[in-house]
């Protein structure tokens, strides 16, 4: 895939109208504000930025290793397809690894509200791939790519089936890694875009919560979120889950929750007397 193709995919994926479920998730922001946080800042603008800063930092540290490993798995699958005699065996292997990743994410996400949101958004992404990104029947098949795309589509269908039968949860970071590799984005772009979308959906949530106006949100997105996404993508790009790598140093390079206050407030989401988000 050349640069123009990748840019086009980036444009598609950053469309805020995609039905990815992010519009009902605030990742704990609604609860944070409701509980009287932040403790020491009272301007709404600062509140929004502070939450995005702390939330993105802990999300990157805990979820990005899963994005990376899921993406690497599907990349590996794509690269071995040509040489593989037995395609279905290959897809079974990658699905079993994806399932291990997903289980690990479940055991590390010890917050039922975050788990619920992550599952809903993950499944939405897979549906988006099969319904929104597959080649429409009205167009003729492209013989140069069809073997590869058929194999990927078949593998993703199996993954959806595994999730529907409750075998695995299908968490957002894992499904994101799978989807972006399937669409041909590089790992680096996938990581960056994932963090950007997390930050942007927090800004959409803050507009709905009225902690910032629509223009203010745009200002923050351009001037505040940009350096933040860059810094976190750089900091967490080499973190891994340990599922794929022998000799992995989990204590230093593994996923970790780094903001216990945010974790606690996010888990308290359902206790709010009235709420507009699901998380």
């Amino acid at each position: 895939m050349d640069g123009d193709d990748e840019t086009y995919i980036l444009l598609l994926l950053s469309d805020s109208n995609l039905p990815t479920g992010s519009f009902v998730a605030s990742a704990g922001f609604e609860s944070f504000v409701k509980h009287g946080f932040p403790a020491d800042w009272k301007s709404n603008d600062a509140t929004t930025l502070i939450f995005i800063q702390d939330s993105l930092e802990t999300y990157a540290r805990s979820a990005l290793p899963f994005v990376s490993d899921a993406h690497r798995l599907v990349d590996r699958f794509k690269n071995s397809l040509d040489a593989a005699a037995d395609e279905s065996h290959l897809s079974d292997t990658v699905l079993s690894d994806i399932s291990s990743l997903d289980q690990l994410y479940t055991t590390m996400t010890l917050n039922h509200v975050a788990r619920r949101a992550s599952k809903a958004q993950g499944v939405a992404l897979l549906t988006l791939y099969s319904k929104g990104f597959s080649r429409p029947p009205s167009l003729p098949k492209d013989p140069s790519v069809s073997k590869l795309s058929d194999a990927i589509a078949a593998m993703l269908e199996k993954l959806k089936l595994m999730i529907r039968r409750e075998g695995i949860d299908g968490h957002l970071p894992i499904c994101w890694g799978v989807l972006t590799s399937a669409l041909g984005l590089t790992l680096e772009r996938s990581q960056y875009l994932h963090l950007f979308l997390h930050a942007r959906s927090l800004l959409s949530a803050s507009v709905r919560l009225n902690t910032v106006g629509p223009y203010g949100a745009q200002q923050l997105l351009l001037h505040g979120v940009r350096p933040l996404v860059q810094a976190e993508a750089l900091r967490c790009k080499d973190l891994r889950t340990g599922i794929l790598d022998v000799g992995h140093d989990d204590m230093n390079d593994g996923p970790a929750m780094i903001w216990p206050l945010g974790e606690l407030l996010a888990a308290r989401h359902d206790l709010q007397h009235s709420r507009i988000f699901n998380s």
Binding site: A39, H223, P227, A231, P260, G262
Partner: peptide
């Protein structure tokens, strides 16, 4: 069934133009 990993460190660098968030800021009060 559970792998609870909590990491608290105060190594976050300043990201201009954003204000620096220390561990104390993040966990206050």
């Amino acid at each position: 069934i559970a792998k609870d990993v909590m990491l608290l460190d105060d190594q976050s660098a300043t990201i201009p133009p954003l204000p620096r968030r220390t561990l104390r800021d993040k966990l206050a009060p």
